[in-house]
């Protein structure tokens, strides 16, 4: 059975944890630390938690997965409630139908716009900055690092201002584009992504091309979007499968 930890974790304990993880304990201290973990079940539990904190904060891929699930759950909550208001919903549906009939030839364009919107919402996911920060902290320019932190805090306007202080930094350009997408400024986002694609010798081309295509979809430029997705699908990049899927769905409509 687990023992519920009651002992207060001291700063000294945490210092030892850090030193152990960083491989900084000398032989004698290391032996003593391991022995104390064996003898003190509470300390062992606290050390397990300390390791878990480090792991959760750095395992951003799994965190991202769990966040995606939470997003889906959050998005479903109001829908769940709507089920209990079928009368209101029927009126809304009826009103929509009347509107569509009245719109006559406008129907087709509304349908296309809705399907673009639906596809965009299905495929657009907020990009985490955690991976990028981790992989590039050593040579990242100061304003870009600041911008990434602001992006992570969803402060997109301030993030864009920071990225603009390093106008030639491609990572900054990518996240400026993503920030603009979050703000709904898709036209400006396209030009940021286009810059990266045109540069043609960097690590962000795949992402830039993918998000640029999604921007086309969102702004209703379906032909350009299809062309752009086809070009991604023709390569063996990370967005190949998603592009093939989205093209299939666009064809099916």
């Amino acid at each position: 059975m687990i023992r519920i930890t009651k002992t207060y974790l001291t700063m000294k304990d945490l210092e030892k944890f850090e030193e152990y993880i960083n491989g900084e304990l000398e032989e004698g201290d290391l032996w003593e630390f391991k022995k104390s973990l064996e003898e003190d079940a509470d300390l062992k539990k606290q050390f397990e938690l300390y390791q878990a904190v480090r792991q959760v904060s750095t395992n951003s891929k799994k965190q991202l997965f769990m966040e995606e699930l939470k997003d889906i759950h959050r998005a479903q909550q109001p829908k769940g409630k709507q089920r209990f208001h079928s009368f209101k919903r029927s009126w809304a549906v009826a009103a929509s139908l009347i509107f569509l009939v009245a719109a006559g030839f406008g129907i087709l364009s509304i349908r296309t716009q809705n399907s673009n919107q639906k596809l965009f919402e299905t495929y657009f996911q907020t990009e985490s900055a955690a991976f990028a920060v981790r992989s590039a902290t050593n040579n990242m320019e100061e304003p870009v690092l600041d911008g990434m932190q602001l992006y992570e805090l969803h402060n997109y306007d301030a993030a864009i201002e920071m990225f603009e202080k390093s106008p030639n930094n491609l990572m900054g350009k990518l996240y400026a584009g993503l920030s603009l997408m979050e703000l709904g400024e898709y036209g400006d986002a396209i030009s940021k992504f286009q810059y990266i694609v045109d540069h043609n010798d960097n690590l962000f081309i795949d992402q830039a091309a993918w998000y640029k295509s999604l921007c086309y979809l969102k702004t209703g430029d379906r032909d350009l979007a299809a062309k752009s997705f086809k070009s991604i699908a023709a390569d063996n990049g990370v967005y190949k499968t998603k592009s093939l899927k989205i093209l299939k769905e666009m064809d099916a409509e």
Binding site: I4, T5, M11, L14, L49, Y50, V53
Partner: peptide, 13 residues
């Protein structure tokens, strides 16, 4: 940092 981690671990416990 240690204070923050301690706070977090205490809450979890």
């Amino acid at each position: 940092r240690r204070k923050c981690i301690r706070k977090l671990i205490d809450r979890i416990i």
